[in-house]
Amino acid sequence: MKKIAIIGAGPAGIEAASILAAHNFEVTLFEKSSTPLSNILDKAFLFPSSVAAADLVDELNAKLLHDNIQLICEKEIVNIKETNDECKLFDKDGKTYFASKVLITTGYTIFDAHRKEELGYGIYKGVISSLDLEKMIRHKQIKNSIDELPQRITFLQCVGSRDEKSGNNYCSKICCVTAVKQAIEARKLLPQAEIYIFYMDLRMWGQTFEELYRQSQEEYDIRYIRGRISEASATFDGKVQIKSEDTLIGQPLKMTTDLLVLMCGMEPSPGTKTLAENCQIAGDYHFIQTIDPHLHDNETAQTGIYVAGSAKRPMSIRDTLSDAAAAAMQIMSDCQ
């Protein structure tokens, strides 16, 4: 029985593991943190169908129960070396493991909004990240900085993505529709609040996203303003004052809001960065580079090392799952 190592027990890692296990491979799944799926666990609902994130977590966890899968948590793999058709994995403490193939599914992390200090994240209580809001929605409690129901919520798109200043020129792909989804969820919890989304342009790339966007305006009264927010400051009553420009009418505008939600982009996770660098497979922005974006999109320049999911570029959960399946198929065919 061939041994396969998978690094990162997120949706990609688990999906690939379960497929490989079902085909009689012996899979070892390494996870840095104490539980698998920690990124999804923060989420409330998943677009496009607003399915509860907890349901997906349960289903994916069930897949882990296969006899051929061994899950090792709190184990960070930092380097992989390939010798004589075998891969040697090194963990942080220098311990080694062997596998015939390795699949990297170390995923993403969200952009640290502290780096855009002008937006006041970490300085003003009313400024939160998309992840913070997702947690509030999960607990069905959206509160402003003084623990009252917010009268007005403002979303800002493209924080730390499509932004030369922060060094991330790429589009993170999922934030546009996430904001639409979160705005709808917020509306369900706060029927009276005003909800604004500041955007550069809205990229509704999924088949159902455009419709969701239309619904958000017609049924949920979400208002869209084209423009970026240049700076935020606090008001005496604990609200946030923002400066922006409505670029469709060409007017500068100032407004106060209870909550400013920063739609933070995706960056390679620290684990992705470490492996990309140590295995010399780093691509643009420290994501992992594949050999070819069309036909060899799961293989890396190092033989025996494969990659799937958002470790190679920003990806939605759906794309991640199908990419993981593709990676599993590739590994199987290469093992024959």
């Binding site: 200090e117 002008e118 006041g120 300085i123 003003y124 240049s230 700076e231 400051s233 606090a234």
Partner: peptide
């Protein structure tokens, strides 16, 4: 400094 509000704060 208005773009680095931690300083005036």
């Amino acid at each position: 400094s208005h773009l680095t509000p931690a300083i005036p704060e």
